[in-house]
Structures are given as C-alpha cells and as structure tokens.
Computed example of a mutant assay.
Amino acid sequence: MPHVVFDIVGTCFTYERFFAAIEARLGDKMLAAGIKPRLFGYTWTEVAEREYTYLSMTGRYLSFQHVFKSLFYRMLWFSGIKEPRAFATDADVEACLDGWRHLGPRQGLQEAMQKLRDAGFTVWCFTTGDAKRILGYFQDAGVEMAPESILSCDTLGLSKPAPEAYKNMLGRFEGQEVWFAAAHSWDASAAREFGFKTAYCSEGEKEPCYDIFGKYDAEGVTIVEMADALIAKSKGATQ
C-alpha cells in the first residue's frame, strides 16, 4: 500500500487567516508606520521558523508556538518601531495568534486527499505544529484526518529539516512506497534527500527556484494538480 506524508502549515492550510488577523487588529497602525501587515506576518513566520530550527539543531528544542509568540515584539523592532511594547500589547499578540490557530484549508484540499485515498494511498501528516491544533484545522475544515495519522515534531523533540526527523518518519514505512508532499521547497527537497519520493505544490511560493532546490518526482501548481501528478507517477512506476 502506498503512503503520502503531507506537510501541513502552508501546504494543506494557508496563512491567509493569520494575515487577515494582523490586518484587522493592527493594520491601520502598521500602515501608518510604513509596515505592510502581510509582509510583517510573513517575516514573523519565517524568522520564527529559523530560530525554532536553530534551537532544535543545538539541542534546545522548544515548540514552534512558544518561539513564534515570543518573537512578536522583536519583529516590530526590526520593522522600525522604536518602542514595540508601546506600539502593541499582549492582547494584540493573542489576537494575531488567534488567526494562526484557525488557519483555513488550501482550495482543493478535500478533493486532493480524496483522490489520493481513492487511488489507494494512506494519508499522513508530519508537522512542526502541535498535533491537537493541527487536528483542529482538519476538523474545522470538514476534512477527514485520523489523530493517529498526525506526527508532530514536538513528539520527536526535533524539528524539520533535521535528517533524523525525516528518517524517523520514513522508517515507519520500511519497504513501502512513500511520498512526501509539500508547498515549501526547503521541506520537499529535504525529504527527497533522505529517501522520500516527493511532490511539490507551487501555488504558495509561486517561484520554485529549481536552481536552488532542484525538481521533484511530481509537481502541480494547485494541490489538486499535485495530487493528480503524484497518482499518475505512482501508477506509471508500478506498471
């Protein structure tokens, strides 16, 4: 039986509700200070990913959510706000994070996962997010996902893209066909290096930057197109 392991945040669920929460709570103040709320949200996310990963690499693992929340005021400082804690409050931080806690599904997610299941794949999740919150995303979106199919880096105490993280996931399916599906080039390309067949959805990043990350076994612009390409490639390999 073939398997497909999905990255979740940014792949199955987009950042749009998070960006909207920042705009609703602080958008006018940010724009008046010359800060684009959407760019702030993206930068905050990316810096948190880096710090979270660096902490894990040096044996000081903390949950992504912990790191993410703590960096908010620092990101205001780097955005040009001289007194970040006078500009925003802890209540503002929570309002922004509430958008993160309720991310919405990428268009076509339900269809993509159903196509994969109908083609005989079991569907798994491998995420830096906490498993309870990730399960909530699926439940809120009405997309089937068994709790036991969600593996969080919190359980391993080790963040992607550490080789051991991918190898741990891959080792659960020894001798079987296993795909890794993501909308992040760094994630899909890392999984490829450690033994997964890979599928990439370019809708989120727009520019795949093949010169940096290389190409994948299956690709699509949308998540449905990615699923179709994955299924076709898998069937072609077994015929």
Rank of each mutant, 00 (worst) to 15 (best):
Arg38Cys: 00
Phe196Tyr: 11
Glu225Gln: 15
Thr198Gly: 05
Thr45Cys: 00
Ala188Pro: 13
Ala112Tyr: 05
Gly236Asn: 08
Met1Val: 10
Glu219Gly: 07
Asp90His: 10
Met75Ser: 04
Asp92Cys: 08
Gly220Tyr: 01
Phe121Val: 11
Ala191Tyr: 02
Glu193Gly: 07
Ala86Ile: 09
Val93Pro: 11
Ala181Gln: 06
Ser149Leu: 01
Tyr166Gly: 03
Leu151Asp: 06
Gly195Met: 09
Glu16Cys: 01
Ala141Gln: 05
Trp186His: 03
Asp7His: 00
Ala141Cys: 07
Gln107Cys: 00
Lys233Ser: 14
Phe87Gly: 12
Leu97Tyr: 07
Tyr61Phe: 15
Tyr54Phe: 08
Ser202Ile: 00
Phe13Trp: 02
Ala146Arg: 15
Ala119Glu: 12
Leu135Gln: 15
Thr198Tyr: 07
Thr122Trp: 01
Tyr73Lys: 10
Pro84Gly: 10
Glu46Asp: 13
Ser56Met: 06
His3Gly: 02
Val4Gly: 03
Ser152Met: 11
Ala227Arg: 03
Glu148Ile: 02
Leu71Ser: 08
Ser152Cys: 10
Asp28Arg: 13
Ala191Met: 04
Ile22Val: 14
Ile223Thr: 04
Pro84Cys: 10
Ala88Pro: 12
Arg25Gln: 13
Pro161Ala: 04
Leu31Lys: 15
Phe68Val: 07
Gly136Glu: 04
Tyr42Ala: 08
Ala182Thr: 09
Gln114Met: 08
Asn168Ala: 15
Arg101Gly: 10
Arg172Ala: 06
Ala181Trp: 03
His66Ser: 15
Cys201Arg: 04
Glu111Tyr: 00
Glu177Leu: 10
Phe78Gln: 13
Asp217Asn: 14
Phe213Met: 08
Phe64Val: 05
Ala232Trp: 03
Glu193His: 09
Lys29Glu: 14
Pro147Glu: 12
Tyr52Lys: 01
Arg192Ser: 13
Leu76Phe: 09
Ser159Asn: 14
Ala91Ile: 08
Ala191Glu: 12
Phe13Glu: 06
Pro37Val: 06
Trp179His: 07
Ala131Ser: 15
His184Met: 05
Glu174Ile: 02
Glu111Phe: 01
Trp179Asn: 07
Ala181Cys: 13
Thr222Val: 00
Ser149Gly: 01
Ala232Asn: 12
Ala95Ile: 02
Phe173Asp: 11
Asp92His: 10
Ser185Ala: 14
Phe138Gln: 01
Tyr15Met: 14
Gln114Pro: 02
Gly108Tyr: 05
Gln114Lys: 09
Gly171Gln: 09
Ala86Val: 13
Ala24Ser: 14
Glu203Arg: 12
Trp77Val: 00
Asp217Ile: 09
Trp179Lys: 06
Cys209Gln: 14
Ala48Tyr: 00
Arg106Gly: 01
Gln65Ile: 10
Tyr210Phe: 12
Val178Gly: 09
Gly171His: 12
Ile212Glu: 14
Lys115Ser: 09
Thr222Leu: 07
Pro2Arg: 14
Arg50Leu: 11
Trp186Ile: 05
Gly214Thr: 05
Ala24His: 13
Ala182Leu: 03
Ala181Ser: 12
Phe64Thr: 08
Leu170Thr: 04
Gly142Asn: 03
Gly108Met: 01
Ala237Thr: 07
Gly175Pro: 11
Gly80Ser: 10
Thr155Ala: 15
Ser152Phe: 00
Ala95His: 06
Ala95Thr: 04
Arg25Phe: 01
Leu97Trp: 01
Thr222Ala: 09
Glu144Asn: 03
Arg74Met: 09
Phe72Asp: 06
Phe138Pro: 02
Arg38Pro: 01
Ala181Tyr: 11
Glu46Pro: 04
Gly220Glu: 05
